[in-house]
Nucleic acid binder design. Sequence first.
DNA 1: CACACATTCTGGAATGATTCCAGCAAAGCG
DNA 2: CGCTTTGCTGGAATCATTCCAGAATGTGTG
Lengths: 152, 152
Amino acid sequence: MTTASTDGTSLRERGLRVTSSRLAVLRALSEHPHATADDVVRAVRADLGSVSVQAVYDCLHALTSAGLLRRMEPAGHPARYERRTGDNHHHVVCRSCGAVADVDCTVGHAPCLTPSASHGFAVDLAEVTFWGLCPTCAVDPVPAAGPLSTTL
Amino acid sequence: MTTASTDGTSLRERGLRVTSSRLAVLRALSEHPHATADDVVRAVRADLGSVSVQAVYDCLHALTSAGLLRRMEPAGHPARYERRTGDNHHHVVCRSCGAVADVDCTVGHAPCLTPSASHGFAVDLAEVTFWGLCPTCAVDPVPAAGPLSTTL
DNA sequence: CACACATTCTGGAATGATTCCAGCAAAGCG
DNA sequence: CGCTTTGCTGGAATCATTCCAGAATGTGTG
């Protein structure tokens, strides 16, 4: 797994300019994995004083396509970002509050899954999302979101 | 798998009122599996003449929570609906054009996956999405969306 | 078969996450 | 230290989806 430094080295290594916003975004996500863009905006503002929303989105995109961040978007919830990249771990999402937790690969190591019949698609990534209720929401449930619960 | 009739029986069985819009939505999705809400609106209008966007969203929600439809939402693309429910099949999504195709369960039958460590979550559904390029886009790629390609 | 009532549908406005745009500011090379 | 490239600001726009209030329609009861 990759959850490297918060100084500029990892940025420079990937040919990205080192800016305070980018470092702050990385720091924010080190402290709060699975944060939403909005969470990151708040964290970065608390850290640097003031940053525009777009600056944060730009950073998130730049860092994501450089492979320093991973983006996941649970159906019905805003996107979340995390620093664990490279390992193919998966996620459990709470259908009540949207909380996300990491789950290590079920069936061994990467690639842990290969589609049986891929209809001619050139598949390069298998994404697994588990849906359920987090410990807190299991006690007193609320609304609900995400795919319908089936018999698992 | 469940891809039943387009007359009102399946609706009545689930205690839903039989309305022309609902039947039209079911028909539309029989002909075009993995259609977006917008696709359905167009299909239903071509069929019935005029329906409001909300009527379609209402139908989609009603049918989905009744278990007659399944909703899937590929990151970065509008939600898609399909009539195959009950079986736990998965999807391949094209990161270029967003096309979706069905993939049968990789590792056997439902439940084909169980999270190793679920952090106290009560998991009830495992959702698998494969990302890649569809046959058409593999020829001449375009933009790109969805999670970053990793080494699979 | 007619009614009454609960649902569903209409049209229009609102929301929330994310993106686009044009101009200013900072990063990094020489 | 100056230049060019890249990143940041603020404000407006987009897109899917939802909320609202009132009109229309399906359905079980008398």
